[in-house]
């Protein structure tokens, strides 16, 4: 699914104009991007969370030439899948969830 398909499905299922659906989807991702720019984490219950990791600059070796190079500090976004989505994707996990253990019958002496 690409963004345009998400917009189309949203428009159909929420019964809103495609133009409105497009603005809504863009608003959501723009707001998420702006939070990440501010270094803020995002937590979407039932979906997952996004965090920005800061990497310090360091000196490294150029793998091919071996010359010393400086690596600039950088920020990278990371996503951690939420439990509900993780289980829904891994259908096997649901099938393999152990049955709740039956209580053992009480032995009568």
């Amino acid at each position: 699914m690409v963004k345009s398909e998400l917009i189309q499905q949203l428009s159909e299922q929420a019964n809103i104009q495609p133009k409105i659906a497009e603005i809504a989807v863009n608003t959501v991702f723009d707001a998420m991007i702006n939070a990440l720019i501010k270094g803020e984490g995002i937590e979407i219950r039932g979906f997952g969370s996004f965090k920005v990791r800061e990497y310090k600059g360091r000196t490294g070796n150029h793998p091919r030439t071996g010359s010393v190079i400086t690596i600039e500090p950088k920020r990278r976004p990371f996503f951690k899948v939420g439990k509900e989505l993780k289980d829904r994707i891994n259908h096997q996990a649901i099938n393999q969830t152990p049955e709740p253990q039956q209580e053992l019958p009480v032995e009568i002496p």
């Binding site: 998400l6 949203l10 299922q13 929420a14 809103i16 959501v28 039932g46 829904r88």
Partner: peptide
């Protein structure tokens, strides 16, 4: 709408 966007992705 917000719920639906994430549900469609899921």
């Amino acid at each position: 709408i917000v719920e639906l966007i994430f549900e469609l992705m899921r």
